[in-house]
């Protein structure tokens, strides 16, 4: 009796993990948060939560867009460039005495710029059939070049009302970034309840089979680049409203972490499998690793190495589990 129930429960776990590939990541995040909490008493107090979420939010938005591209079988190495470009637009076009109307218009323009950038990527990848990694790497220089044209040196200052609103919890209780994160989750929930879900995952896993069954693979992939561009623009809005200024190199160091977060979140780089939820968790994992190292006061010379080692271990965990399972069989 008992011998029978044990394997069936492991099988159920296995099922849950394959249905929700981000469960591993969630466990990893919980472990990291427990460690972080043991080193930092006020980790879950409002100021700390608000601050962490504010710093992580742009990376989360980038990773969310990246996830959809990756699931459909591509990759977007230009998200940092798009962020820089939109950050430059926002910082230069919203003066500190801007009206609400002006503010909203400029945000709309920068979102359009993000979409246009995504369209350029999508055109290159799906219609010119260029390699995604090369195409988007090349276009990233176009976008960061435009950023430097618009804003040659760091600067610009948004109205104080805007930054004050964004940086302070609503009613001294709810951090604004938390609301945005809920918004991303709702977006993903709705998206995965439409036919687009089949299209998205189908385009990634077995593109030819999907095409044969009537999935418009090219259009789906084009759409994912559009979405990625849009999310990168939203990330720029979050960044700019957070620190109130622009830097033409703001996104330089943000592209690779967005890919790492996607992978940490259980999304397969080979496409066809993954979740935006996991990528958000992935960003929180990366942020928590750096916070744990900071609060543990790891010597500053070994910190980059420790940081990298933990990320490698985190990336390897699902692989190790799978290996163990294969060896048991």
């Amino acid at each position: 009796m008992t011998t029978r129930t044990a394997p069936s429960s492991t099988r159920q776990f296995g099922k849950a993990f394959s249905r929700y590939p981000w469960l591993y990541s969630l466990i990893m995040l919980v472990v990291l948060l427990v460690i972080n909490r043991s080193l930092q008493d006020n980790l879950f107090e409002l100021f700390a939560v608000n601050g962490n979420l504010r710093v992580w939010l742009p990376a989360m938005l980038l990773a969310a867009g990246q996830t959809m591209v990756v699931i459909a079988g591509g990759i977007d190495m230009s998200v940092g460039g798009i962020l820089s470009m939109c950050n430059a637009i926002l910082a230069t076009q919203i003066p500190s005495d801007a009206t609400a109307e002006r503010f909203i218009t400029v945000i709309a323009i920068s979102l359009l710029a993000g979409l246009a950038a995504g369209a350029l990527n999508g055109f290159g990848v799906t219609y010119l059939r260029l390699q995604p990694i090369v195409t988007t790497y090349a276009t990233s220089f176009i976008f960061s070049g435009i950023a430097l044209q618009i804003l040659p040196e760091p600067g610009g200052r948004l109205p104080r009302d805007v930054t004050t609103f964004f940086r302070n919890p609503i009613g001294d209780a709810v951090p604004v970034p938390a609301l945005v994160i809920v918004g991303i989750l709702i977006f993903w929930y709705v998206l995965t309840r439409t036919r687009f879900r089949q299209y998205l995952f189908g385009s990634g896993s077995k593109a030819e089979a999907a095409y044969a069954t009537g999935v418009p693979v090219s259009r789906v992939r084009f759409t994912t680049y559009l979405l990625s561009g849009l999310f990168a623009a939203l990330a720029a809005v979050a960044l700019t409203m957070g620190n109130g200024t622009g830097n033409p190199r703001a996104g330089d160091l943000m592209t690779l972490p967005s890919v790492v977060a996607v992978v940490l979140g259980g999304t397969a780089l080979s496409g066809g499998r993954g979740s935006v939820i996991g990528s958000l968790i992935g960003v929180a994992i990366l942020g928590s690793i750096s916070n744990v190292l900071s609060f543990a006061q790891i010597d500053r010379w070994v910190r980059p190495l420790t940081d990298a080692l933990i990320i490698v271990v985190a990336l390897a965990v699902p692989g190790v589990f799978a290996l163990v399972r294969r060896m048991r069989r």
Partner: peptide, 23 residues
């Protein structure tokens, strides 16, 4: 002395400062 020193961008340095405040 609590020394936060690493190659990082503005977001990373903001996190450094927040961690110092939280500490």
């Amino acid at each position: 002395l609590v020394i936060e020193s690493e190659d990082t961008d503005a977001a990373g340095q903001e996190q450094q400062i927040l961690n110092l405040i939280n500490r």
